[in-house]
């Protein structure tokens, strides 16, 4: 601590500073959170109310905004698309990523470094920059306007960092466990399943959290690869909704609120892991 407060027996000056800092901190948090609160509150207002009374609670809670957006705005489709695509992409990333990490961390062969560096290079390279060949590839695979293309792209996107993180953790699994298992007659696949994976659960959780938000929130790739309305993901759906209903701010706010709710729910359940995940490895000790 910079100033090392001990509230009860510090000088009056420090007490004042303490209270001041507390106020500043609370004020800061309110300022940051306020746009989100405003969004949620305003989603229950009428458009006129949003512009005439931006700071107050809604006069009446218009759930009809949400109903309209969900049904007529097609958000039920967007929501389902996002869930399906994110879930399958995450499953691929976790499954293939852990397999590849296992293949890198616990075996020795000549090409090992090459493969490892190959995956590592993906962490710095932006996949966004490869959009032109990617588009051609998808076209040649006849996957344009197909949600499978997004699943594959998101999987490719998540693999480098996943392999990096998981292989780091897997290296720390003691060899004695493996030897003991082999003596008991287990082959490699069983070792992977019954020893490596369970021991790597913390890092698997980390990787899930690290990847799930960018995949769910991604707008760029759905924008390029999906055109049919019924296949759009949530962010893309929000964008086209906004383009259509630009002036109907009450509906827009309801749509935006729907878009932010899923990740917030995930966050509420996993906030401990989120914070651990974001800080793990970034700070020594």
């Amino acid at each position: 601590m910079i100033l090392d407060f001990r509230f009860s027996h510090s000088s009056p000056v420090k007490k004042v500073l303490y209270i001041l800092f507390q106020i500043i901190l609370i004020g800061y948090v309110i300022v940051i959170i306020y746009p989100i609160l405003n969004l949620l509150l305003s989603s229950f207002k009428t458009t006129r109310e949003i512009f005439t009374n931006p700071f107050s609670f809604p006069a009446e809670w218009r759930f009809s905004n949400y109903v309209k957006v969900w049904q007529k705005g097609g958000f039920d489709m967007y929501f389902v698309n996002s869930i399906v695509i994110t879930a399958i992409a995450m499953a691929l990333v976790l499954l293939f990523g852990s397999m590849a990490a296992n293949g890198i961390a616990r075996y020795n062969y000549k090409m090992k470094m090459v493969v490892y560096l190959l995956f590592l290079s993906g962490i710095v390279l932006p996949l966004k920059a490869a959009i032109i060949p990617l588009f051609l590839l998808i076209k040649n695979l006849h996957l344009t306007d197909n949600r499978l293309s997004l699943i594959l792209i998101f999987a490719a996107m998540g693999l480098p960092s996943t392999v990096f993180i998981l292989s780091g953790f897997m290296k720390t699994i003691p060899k004695e466990l493996e030897y003991a298992a082999r003596i008991d007659g287990c082959n490699d696949l069983v070792i992977f399943q019954k020893i490596v994976i369970p021991l790597s659960m913390p890092s698997i959780t980390l990787v899930t959290i690290y990847n799930i938000v960018p995949i769910w929130n991604d707008f760029f790739f759905p924008l390029i690869f999906i055109s049919t309305d019924s296949k759009k993901t949530l962010p893309l759906g929000v964008a086209s909704f906004f383009g259509q209903y630009q002036i109907a701010w009450d509906l827009i706010f309801a749509a935006l609120s729907i878009a932010i709710v899923p990740m917030i729910i995930v966050y509420l359940f996993m906030s401990r892991y989120f914070i651990k995940g974001m800080t793990a490895g970034a700070v020594k000790g």
């Binding site: 948090v29 940051i32 959170i33 746009p35 989100i36 938000v213 769910w216 929130n217 707008f219 949530l234 962010p235 929000v238 964008a239 906004f242 935006l256 878009a259 932010i260 990740m263 917030i264 966050y267 906030s271 989120f274 914070i275």
Partner: peptide, 11 residues
């Protein structure tokens, strides 16, 4: 404070 980073860019 971490909440805003969970929101999609377009939102």
């Amino acid at each position: 404070l971490f909440l805003p980073s969970l929101i999609p860019g377009v939102v």
